[in-house]
C-alpha cells in the first residue's frame, strides 16, 4: 500500500510536470526536499536528545510508571494486548499530553519512544501490532487543544475573532478520535477471525 502510494506521488508528479512543461521544477523540488529532510531530522535530533534524556530520568525515578498506573484503567481498555506495567504506556501518555498542549516538538520524541517500546512487545517485528495501530490512530486523530499556528495566521489575516475556531476544532478532533477508537475495535476483531 505505502509502496504504491509513494510510486503514485512520484510518477504522477513527474508525469504532470512533463506534460505541463514544468519538468525543471521536478529536479529543483526533489533536491530541495531531500535537503529539507536532513534539516528536519537534525532539528529533531536536538529536541529528541533533550526529551529522551529527561524521559530516562523520569523512568529511573519511577515517574513514568506512576503516570502509567494513574491512567492505567483507561489505557487498558484501548490497549488490551499490552502488559499493564508496559513501559510503552508511559511514553504513549507523554506523547498524547504533549500533543494536546500543542508542544509538537516534544510530542514526536515521546511518540517515537512509544513505538520503540511497542516494538519490543511485538511478536512479528515487520508487521504492525494491534497496539501500534491503536496508538497511531489516537496520535493522528487526537491533536492539539489550542491550534496556535492557525490562530496566528488568522490574527495576521485580520480576523475579528481569531480564536473562535477553537471550539469547533476541539469538536471535530473529538469526533475523529471517537470514530478512530470505535473503528479500531472493529478492525482489530476482523483481523483475529
Amino acid at each position: 500500500m505505502v509502496n504504491l502510494i509513494w510510486l503514485i506521488l512520484l510518477a504522477g508528479g513527474i508525469l504532470v510536470a512533463a506534460v505541463t512543461g514544468r519538468i525543471d521544477t521536478v529536479t529543483a523540488s526533489a533536491l530541495k526536499a531531500a535537503e529539507m529532510g536532513v534539516e528536519v531530522a537534525f532539528e529533531l535530533i536536538g529536541v529528541m536528545s533533550l526529551w529522551l534524556g529527561l524521559m530516562r530520568l523520569a523512568e529511573e525515578a519511577g515517574l513514568v510508571q506512576g503516570i502509567a498506573r494513574l491512567f492505567g484503567p483507561a489505557l487498558r481498555l484501548l490497549f488490551p494486548s499490552l502488559k499493564p506495567d508496559s513501559p510503552a504506556l508511559g511514553a504513549i501518555i507523554m506523547n498524547l499530553s504533549a500533543n494536546l498542549l500543542g508542544l509538537g516538538n516534544a510530542a514526536t520524541p515521546f511518540g517515537l519512544k512509544a513505538m520503540q517500546e511497542l516494538q519490543k512487545e511485538n511478536p512479528e517485528p515487520e508487521v504492525a501490532s494491534p497496539a501500534m495501530c491503536t496508538f497511531l490512530a489516537l496520535n493522528t486523530s487526537a491533536i492539539t487543544l489550542v491550534p496556535a499556528t492557525i490562530i496566528a495566521v488568522r490574527l495576521k489575516a485580520q480576523s475579528a475573532h481569531p480564536t473562535e475556531i477553537i471550539g469547533p476544532t476541539i469538536f471535530a478532533t473529538g469526533c475523529a478520535m471517537t470514530a478512530a477508537m470505535i473503528a479500531d475495535r472493529f478492525f482489530r476483531r476482523g483481523q483475529k477471525s
Binding site: 509513494w6 506521488l9 512520484l10 504522477g12 508528479g13 513527474i14 508525469l15 504532470v16 510536470a17 505541463t20 514544468r22 521544477t25 521536478v26 529543483a28 523540488s29 526533489a30 530541495k32 526536499a33 531531500a34 529539507m36 529532510g37 536532513v38 528536519v40 531530522a41 537534525f42 529533531l44 535530533i45 529528541m48 529522551l52 520524541p109 517515537l112 519512544k113 520503540q116
Partner: peptide, 24 residues
C-alpha cells in the same frame, strides 16, 4: 532515532514535494 528516521523523511518529503510542486 534521528538518523534512523532520516531515510523515511527524505523518501516521503521528496515524493510529496514533487507531487505538489508539479501541479499534480
Amino acid at each position: 532515532t534521528g538518523v534512523r528516521i532520516l531515510p523515511f523523511l527524505i523518501g516521503m518529503l521528496v515524493a510529496m514535494r514533487i507531487f505538489i510542486d508539479s501541479g499534480a
